[in-house]
Design a protein around this nucleic acid. Structure first.
Lengths: 196, 196
DNA sequence: TGCAGCATGTAATTTGTTACATGATTAA
DNA sequence: TTAATCATGTAACAAATTACATGCTGCA
């Protein structure tokens, strides 16, 4: 399993950084597929330092809190490559949105539309965010970074298109069901009949 | 936040079921966006029963373990509708795959191709699984169920297409970088230069 | 003979999230 | 003067995963 600790090590292999810096990396680069907060990052860095995979230098600054700058050690670099090479990487969706849509017929239409619109807005925001990141880093980004950004944009676009193309499936059939009163009949005792 | 407990309540609002039955529902219907195991489902059912949102009948069976059949109560039905109506549903991807691809340049090409092929195989399996579910339930499925299944299939298809169309981006540029030896130069001290 | 399916549950562990705790500087 | 940015960390909490524990039936 890939955890925040390993990803911190990976990000440090691109260059030195503080926990604060890494948080920003997580927010911009990994935002849509691997978020992490300070509560994960700081303990991760402490663990990496304990294991000798990173070194740490405290840098005092004038007028602001001191920074703890971490650098990957040769052993850390090896450990990271080994970690991502052994892994069978997972790709998991966790969607309350889809779970709720599964029960669309139990919601009133106003609420249903609000959720669909909210989801579309979020997906469009995701695409815009990714475009901004791409524009910022431009052609100097590593190929992996561009692949990942493109993937995210493609997924969000496809999701938005699917919702726009199929939302009527939820609201139109809903009306048909309500007219014929088939909802209650369909819901009651489905399992009993199947298993009798 | 939507949890396994609430989803159990939702599934029970479609008809009575045992914990064992619900596990199967999670495996087939919610497999690709909200998986749950016995370790989540059984405690969830116990909790729902404690709160009076479901009732439970123990049914002895000949030659096999007894079943505990749960049914939603009127209060449970209300509670579920209230729960999904209050929610701002999330839609989160958690992808080790993308995280690893971000560091594609640190992997050897053999390993990289193995991961990409593995991911493609998994996506195709997902599409097939969804098609099988759709075929099984057919036109009698609730509109929400069809919307959700279609969504999953569309996402998996889009992901597979993206990978097939862009994988060369990872391997082709990789060779260019290795030839010019720019990898080490690009990796070292990126941050230092930016902040100097 | 051995494995898959039926059926329930608990306990330990892992992981991450959220809230707490502190405090200076700078721009609006 | 108010909020945001910089900067680090701990502790409590929530949630789900995994392993453990048990045992019968039916098929290959």
């Amino acid at each position: 399993m890939l955890d925040v600790k390993t990803l911190c090590l990976g990000l440090l292999s691109r260059g030195e950084a503080s926990g604060y810096d890494l948080k920003k990396d997580f927010e911009s680069l990994f935002r849509h597929f691997f978020p992490a907060g300070y509560g994960s990052i700081y303990p991760a860095l402490a663990g990496l330092a304990d294991e000798g995979l990173v070194s740490c230098t405290t840098v005092p600054q004038s007028g602001r809190p001191e920074r703890k700058v971490y650098r990957v050690t040769p052993r850390g670099r090896e450990a990271f490559v080994a970690a991502i090479s052994q892994l069978t990487p997972q790709h998991k969706l966790r969607s309350e949105f889809l779970a709720v849509m599964y029960f669309a017929d139990l919601m009133d239409e106003e609420r249903l539309n609000a959720i669909l619109d909210g989801q579309l807005a979020q997906l469009h925001a995701t695409v815009e965010h990714i475009r901004a990141i791409e524009a910022e880093h431009g052609a100097d980004a590593a190929p992996g970074a561009r692949f990942v950004a493109g993937f995210g944009a493609a997924m969000a676009t496809a999701a938005a298109e699917y919702i726009e193309a199929n939302r009527r499936l939820l609201t139109r059939e809903r009306k048909a069901r309500q007219r014929s009163g088939s909802r209650a009949a369909a819901g009651r005792g489905r399992r009993i009949e199947e298993r009798a």
